[in-house]
């Protein structure tokens, strides 16, 4: 555990000086603040931020995450030559990357909301947005780490991270749309909701939307959606599924880290 703690702290210190991470943080501050400046009210800001979060958080977590794992490969060799256990070291490296990225997002998006008293009546929605973004970061960093650990070619690995981003953010939903169009005559509401659980980006979206009143507006499907994900149990299930999307890839990456040659 000491190993993990030491490596996490070192990772956080290293990331604290990272200009890209600072830019990531600043971008969220600027976007969130300008949403308020342009006269946004609570729920509108949450929904606008949601669009940004769903695109940017996975992209940055995947690509920046993979690049970071590649960049630290030699240092990892040096650390592995010390008397440490691989799993402890891996946990430290993962958290040392995921925690600063999460903090940059949560603070970057959260501070403007706090300053503009955007919590208020939308507290739950804002909280859901921050939790969803954090979960997405942890999940995507794990996926990126896994990709980078199993692909030695850096360019290929970053390409795969980009592909993973495209797949989770766009292609998956495209496929769902195609499915819905093909089987439009069937009662597919429930399969559709199930499909939302099997993609972390959709899960994050669903978690937030269920907390924004807007989804109740959306007729029968909206009501079903609200009932499914808006209830305490539904939110817990969605949160649990998102947690699985963090633990699953993390476990794969950890196993890869244990087994691979450096």
């Amino acid at each position: 555990m000491t190993t993990t703690r030491l490596v996490v702290v070192a990772g956080i210190r290293d990331m604290a000086g990272n200009r890209w991470l600072a830019a990531y943080f600043a971008a969220f501050v600027v976007v969130a603040q300008s949403l308020f400046w342009f006269g946004g009210t609570g729920p509108q800001v949450v929904l606008s931020l949601l669009n940004v979060v769903l695109m940017v958080v996975p992209l940055v977590s995947l690509v920046f995450g993979a690049m970071h794992v590649y960049a630290s490969r030699e240092f990892v060799e040096l650390l592995l030559a010390q008397p440490v256990r691989r799993r402890d070291l891996f946990t430290g490296l993962y958290l040392g990357l995921a925690l600063p990225l999460t903090a940059a997002f949560v603070l970057g998006a959260g501070i403007p909301v706090l300053m503009n008293r955007g919590f208020g009546a939308n507290g739950i929605a804002v909280l859901a947005l921050l939790v969803a973004g954090a979960g997405l970061t942890f999940s995507c960093v794990a996926i990126a780490t896994w990709i980078a650990l199993r692909t030695d070619d850096r360019l290929k690995g970053i390409g795969m991270a980009l592909a993973a981003w495209l797949a989770t953010s766009l292609l998956y939903d495209g496929a769902v749309l195609a499915f819905a169009s093909a089987f439009g005559d069937w009662p597919i509401e429930k399969p559709m909701l199930a499909m939302m659980v099997t993609n972390p980006v959709d899960l994050a979206r669903v978690l937030v939307l269920a907390q924004v009143d807007a989804s109740a507006l959306m007729g029968y499907t909206g009501a079903l959606f609200e009932r499914t994900f808006g209830s305490a149990l539904g939110s817990l299930v969605a949160l649990g599924a998102l947690a699985l999307w963090c633990v699953g890839p993390w476990f794969l990456a950890a196993r890869r880290f244990d087994a691979r040659d450096f």
């Binding site: 070192a10 290293d14 630290s72 240092f75």
Partner: peptide, 22 residues
């Protein structure tokens, strides 16, 4: 696999890479 034996080992890799911002 525990790696405790490496307490007695010193290693200098081909090229020294360290976290840039430490």
């Amino acid at each position: 696999r525990e790696g405790e034996y490496r307490r007695h080992l010193g290693y200098m890799p081909q090229a020294g890479h360290f976290p840039e911002h430490l």
